[in-house]
């Protein structure tokens, strides 16, 4: 916690404190629907931050982050369903597996000098490849889905992560805050300087003594590990997993929209982006219901238009624009 606020101006601390109080108290003030939206906001704030480490800090564009969500989710869920392993241990397994997956992809790509668009497509390819593989993996339910046993309502069991939405709300809030603290620490550390140097100009970074291969690997591994926890959360919150859903390219795109719209490479950007886009999507759904429009697709068209408007008029994202207006440094 202290790492989170050290060195911030008083005004920023006040804003942060207000946000903290609002978020901590929210479950007591809102209904089940708003709570579910908030959980989704935090979920994307968390995954967005994980992705931001790799792309926003280190400049490596991944369009296949659903791979790590999926592997993390299936790892913990399968251990729980088949061997009754508690999800905290399952999370450990998820972290190990996803870090390995990230490192393998990173090793192959960076050793062979694959970068930019090619790297992005390689990440899509691995995610899609895995999706189809899981579609045929009967032990994990294949395309029919893997389901977690649901206990009776009202019981909160932290050990097995069975409980009401409020428990999941605080869990994902803790993850999000943890990710923010970690990002802030990393950005100010040696690693953070190295990553930004690699993002800006890899050749110049090498000439300054930075082993760019190694630090790109660290970025991919860490980002994958963090994303895996989002997968574990997803599995135990929704209680069902389908390869088609969890590994799809659409999921990967959802993960990266927040940080880009919010402000790539900034600390607050992924969070701001998630809290703008998720309610926007839900708000549009509500609006459509209100207007009595039921044609499929209208909602997404509107969403696409909003996305287009933001990227055309605020190509650096929402947060840097807000921060400048408020007189904060756009971190």
């Amino acid at each position: 916690m202290r790492a989170l606020v050290a060195g911030l101006p008083a005004r920023a601390r006040a804003v942060l404190a207000l946000v903290a109080v609002l978020l901590l108290g929210a479950p007591f003030a809102v209904d089940a629907y708003v709570l579910s939206v908030l959980i989704l906001c935090l979920y994307f704030a968390y995954t967005g931050q994980a992705w931001n480490i790799m792309m926003g800090f280190a400049g490596q564009l991944s369009l296949g982050h659903s791979l790590y969500v999926g592997i993390g989710a299936y790892a913990a869920a399968a251990l729980f369903v088949h061997f009754d392993v508690n999800p905290w241990l399952g999370a450990l397994a998820a972290i190990v597996l996803c870090t390995l997956a990230g490192l393998v992809i990173g090793f192959l790509a960076f050793r062979f000098g694959i970068a930019g668009v090619y790297f992005a497509i390689l990440t899509i390819a691995f995610a899609e490849f895995t999706r189809i593989g899981f579609d045929h993996w009967n032990w994990l339910g294949a395309s029919g889905g893997l389901f977690l046993p649901v206990k009776e309502r009202g019981v909160t069991d932290l050990a097995t992560l069975r409980g009401p939405p409020v428990m999941f709300y605080y869990a994902i809030l803790a993850l999000t805050v943890g990710a923010l603290a970690l990002s802030r620490l990393l950005l100010a550390s040696r690693l953070g300087y190295y990553w930004r140097a690699i993002r800006e100009d890899e050749e110049a970074a090498q000439a300054l003594g930075i082993d760019t291969f190694r630090y790109k690997m660290v970025a991919v591994g860490l980002s994958a590990a963090m994303t895996s926890l989002a997968g574990v959360f997803f599995a135990f919150y929704y209680n069902n997993l389908f390869p088609e859903q969890i590994f799809s390219m659409g999921r990967s795109i959802e993960i990266i929209l927040g940080p880009i719209i919010g402000g790539l490479g900034t600390l607050a950007g992924p969070i701001v982006g998630a809290f703008v886009l998720t309610p926007l999507a839900d708000g549009i759904t509500e609006l459509m219901q209100l207007l009595g429009i039921e044609t499929p697709g209208v909602k997404q068209v509107f969403y696409g238009v909003c996305l287009l408007v933001v990227i055309v008029f605020l190509p650096n994202g929402i947060w840097p624009a807000i921060a400048r207006r408020l007189g904060f440094a756009p971190r």
């Binding site: 300087y193 190295y194 930004r196 800006e200 050749e203 110049a204 970074a205 930075i210």
Partner: peptide, 22 residues
């Protein structure tokens, strides 16, 4: 480098800090 290669989106100080970390 003959064609200079600054880290454009970093401050001048941060550019040099990267070098100094060596």
């Amino acid at each position: 480098f003959q064609v200079v290669k600054p880290f454009p989106q970093m401050t001048v100080l941060d550019n040099v800090v990267v070098g100094a970390l060596n």
